[in-house]
């Protein structure tokens, strides 16, 4: 399973970087979305993939019952998703605004807007 995930993560990184190198700003943002998903999936994978119970401790016990997944990696990924969501929402608002002002979805035409 880890090997499959490694290829998936690698593919996502490659796709993300390819999209970011395009001239279109919308594709740039799509690249960023893919990149953040790739990074999250990477954390998910390196923490070890095993089939087990969710990391919840049943009532009346102090340790989880049997094998369970690593809760820390899940918490980290969850936080990273939330943060990524917020930041990317901002990026989308920004390119919307940029499109309104510059009237172009092209990096080359964005150049020198400050002159």
């Amino acid at each position: 399973m880890e090997v499959v995930m490694a290829f998936v993560v690698g593919g996502l990184y490659a796709a993300a970087i390819y999209m970011m190198l395009r001239r279109s700003i919308v594709k740039l943002v799509i690249g960023l979305v893919l990149l953040s998903n790739a990074a999250n999936l990477l954390i998910f994978t390196v923490a070890g993939m095993k089939s087990g119970a969710p990391p919840l401790i049943p009532p009346g016990m102090t340790v989880p019952d049997g094998a369970s997944a690593d809760p820390l990696a899940q918490a980290v990924v969850l936080t990273a998703i939330v943060i990524g969501f917020g930041v990317l929402a901002f990026a989308v608002v920004l390119i919307h605004r940029a499109y309104e002002v510059v009237k172009a979805d092209d990096m080359d035409q964005m150049k020198d807007t400050d002159r």
């Binding site: 970011m20 700003i25 740039l28 960023l32 990149l35 953040s36 790739a38 990074a39 999250n40 990477l42 954390i43 390196v46 923490a47 820390l72 990696a73 980290v76 990273a80 930041v87 990317l88 901002f90 990026a91 920004l94 390119i95 605004r97 940029a98 002002v101 510059v102 964005m110 150049k111 020198d112 807007t113 400050d114």
Partner: peptide, 29 residues
């Protein structure tokens, strides 16, 4: 208008570096 080019560069490169940072954290973990 003058702020757009700088803002897009700033956002893109900083997001990229954040993602590299996150990747590094994952590997460290």
């Amino acid at each position: 208008r003058s702020q757009m080019e700088g803002a897009i560069k700033y956002v893109t490169l900083n997001l990229l570096s954040s993602m590299i940072f996150l990747t590094a954290i994952g590997l460290t973990y």
